[in-house]
Design a protein around this nucleic acid. Sequence first.
DNA 1: TCATTTCTGTGTCGGTCAGCACAGAAATCT
DNA 2: AGATTTCTGTGCTGACCGACACAGAAATGA
Lengths: 212, 212
Amino acid sequence: MTTAARPGGRPRGRPRGFDRGAALARAMEVFWALGYEGATMGELTTAMGINSPSLYAAFGSKEELFREAVALYDATEGTAVTRALSEEPTARAAVATVLRETARACTEPGRPTGCMIVVAALNCSQANSPARDFLSGWRREGDEALTRRLEQGVRDGDVPAGTDTAAASAFLGAVLHGMSIRARDGATRAELERTAETTLTAWDVLYGAERP
Amino acid sequence: MTTAARPGGRPRGRPRGFDRGAALARAMEVFWALGYEGATMGELTTAMGINSPSLYAAFGSKEELFREAVALYDATEGTAVTRALSEEPTARAAVATVLRETARACTEPGRPTGCMIVVAALNCSQANSPARDFLSGWRREGDEALTRRLEQGVRDGDVPAGTDTAAASAFLGAVLHGMSIRARDGATRAELERTAETTLTAWDVLYGAERP
DNA sequence: TCATTTCTGTGTCGGTCAGCACAGAAATCT
DNA sequence: AGATTTCTGTGCTGACCGACACAGAAATGA
């Protein structure tokens, strides 16, 4: 983001010869498929259709590009999950949508398997630990958002009072994170959907099915 | 393993100046902590207390060393889980031990967090995909061992007839895999133990608590 | 004793990594 | 038009990667 679009006129010098957003989307897919370390600059520039200096001019560095790619992932692939937490009327409905949507998103045909925020930088050298910690932070924020939604359910009365929301969120988080690994290992969508439904059944008996 | 110990005598040439098993144990810890790609030859040789040519003479290559390290991990850190599947009297007891032992092993003080078989080679470049596929195979074998134990439970009558053992195993596997990621993210032993107990409670209501 | 075998330490190999220097190209501003 | 600004393509750089050549050291066998 070196040049800001000025109101009422194009930027000064030679215009960029590629679509920054489209290139970022390609970079996201490469990082998603290969991980932060596994994606080389050569693979990124090839997929993005640009040369290395253009990438550095537009995005700063490999790590900054990765951070933007993760944000784009959250804003596109992660919308259904994010919206479920804010829009579903009950905690149970939110959990159901999150589980089912995760099963779907982790096994979308023609796309990399597993959630990018889980699988893109789990193990890496110390030199790249910032990228790993960055994704770890996103996972923790997801946990906290889920916990907040469960606490809201307690306040709303659709989750039993006295429920250990942190423990419930940790349990659900473990299932959700595990689904990504299993998707990477080749689990089918049907298997992940069964796991989602199993977890939902467990939810009903652990934290009370909602009574319509 | 270039020289075989001959019966009734030492091997011919200059004896190895280091303990092969001890060096392998150090290598296992490095791979466990940093992952296959994240661990460099320099970090490995430093931890093992040997120079690069000695490593290659004794283990063949980085990848062969990794395979031996994973086997050692399974034979040491994984024994409690493996034994639970063969020795516990009921499927429920086996599942309980596997869950609790995983929570413990993933948060052992002074050791890398998470299960090595889950976290050591999830995302890597195509060049190192053999290592990733190798670990994926170990995970699938773990799944199958768990599924067989549940099927045994059905035959023994301590798991309800008609139980979808594959689905139950996939659900448990997702929890177990997810626990490793959460351990890597800094989850405490107490949190993982709570997740294990939550999962066990779910097991009881999903597949029937055993009646003593 | 001395040839043979095997391991160790130094040094280095080709390959690849992320990142950038530099000059030319393409736009706007005066 | 000419100056200025910004982007693009070629090609390179130092660092690091896994792996190994080579000679010397340390053991055994004859």
